[in-house]
Design a binder for these strands. Sequence first.
DNA 1: ATCGCAAAGTTGGGGCTCCAGCAGTCATCG
DNA 2: CGATGACTGCTGGAGCCCCAACTTTGCGAT
Lengths: 238, 238
Amino acid sequence: MATSDPVYLRVVEDIRRQIHDGTLPPGALIPSRAQLTRKYQVGETAARHALRVLASEGLIIGRIGSGHYVRERSELTPLHRWRFLDRPTPFAADLQSQGWRVTWDWHSEPAEAGPDLARRLRVDESTTVTRTHYVFRGDGRPLQLATAYEPLEFAPHSEEERRSLVARMYAHGVKITEVVESIHTRAPRPSESEALDLPVGVHVLHVERTHWAGDRPVETSDIILPGDRFRMVYSMPV
Amino acid sequence: MATSDPVYLRVVEDIRRQIHDGTLPPGALIPSRAQLTRKYQVGETAARHALRVLASEGLIIGRIGSGHYVRERSELTPLHRWRFLDRPTPFAADLQSQGWRVTWDWHSEPAEAGPDLARRLRVDESTTVTRTHYVFRGDGRPLQLATAYEPLEFAPHSEEERRSLVARMYAHGVKITEVVESIHTRAPRPSESEALDLPVGVHVLHVERTHWAGDRPVETSDIILPGDRFRMVYSMPV
DNA sequence: ATCGCAAAGTTGGGGCTCCAGCAGTCATCG
DNA sequence: CGATGACTGCTGGAGCCCCAACTTTGCGAT
């Protein structure tokens, strides 16, 4: 706050202000390193660092060979959780109901539970579960990663069975009574960054979802969403 | 993925791996810039950049004069939304029920709604609303920021009234029937970063919460939580 | 044994430079 | 007239350096 703040902060704050008040609208070209050094009378290091900070905040994006641009608002598509939708994740179903063309690839494999899953599914660490990886795309672009874990006996045997977890469980005599979702945010792992084609500086929303039948967890999954594209919407009756 | 990846990435990935597999446990000292240049045979710039990337991911934290350390797991305190708690936000109430000593400061002021709030409260842009800023602290440290907006007629007149929004609304003949929360993640604004004492690289969870009485919004608030300390937990009956 | 202080080590800000790779632009050549 | 290629400007990686502010450590004196 003092007058002797780092000089790169002066640049960061001035550009950030211009973005927020609309002087630099989405898509606008930010002055280049060389221009910033002249404009703010700072060294190249400071100009460069300022651009990196703004990029890591997700406000601007650097296009190599071209320049830094103000990020498009990307509009934070809402994902509504007020109805119970599956097929095969409720998020994909909600996007479809909003008119998105959602497609997905998946593959299943057996896996050992391990400590984390053992806790979440309340099974033994050495138990074998079915792990299914999904990659969801909307209009070609990757939208969401999901990894679902189920005890072997509940694994789907057909494409149709995969559509609705609730129906499948019901067929096994298990009635799902509750869904618990735990959301946090973190920097993407390198593999997620690549799979979701994330610009640097974008964090992910990590949703840990568990389906319960009474006091027994019957399926759990990790869902990874780009933090700059989605908001999770929860509706609760009082 | 090729062998000619940036060299700083080699350093980042190696340290990240060591943190994930436990070779470098929480609190462990990361080699210094000088040591990294020797160990990985890279220049100082690359070593420095690697440390900055790890810090911006929230994996390590730099202590000036001392060194970089693996961040303590900070345990992502869960905030449960399965019961309707207020007084004055449900998150604070949930933390109290987990044994935290939560205190808060607040101040109210009239404010013009403006376009964003006009949309959220379904009022005219020039309507005056009561804006209340809260700063919540747990064990001394800042935990959460909240800003609540209410039409003037619903504003609380006593400390007691402030405790329960539901009861207060009921006293006005308004029965709250639904709570809608919309969660996204973003980089903190400078003021939030300062107020919450956030390390660089930590994003925030921004919860937009609106209370509805039938099809009419009667209160809305913005809640800002450090992304590295909390996870939101939603429980929904099927 | 303890206190104080100086030296060494470390981070973070800042400066300068070189280079590879990419994207436009513009002029020249077929 | 159209296509090719040279040139310029930009980003991102990388190297090296200096300095201020701070911590840790270890030594020497009391």
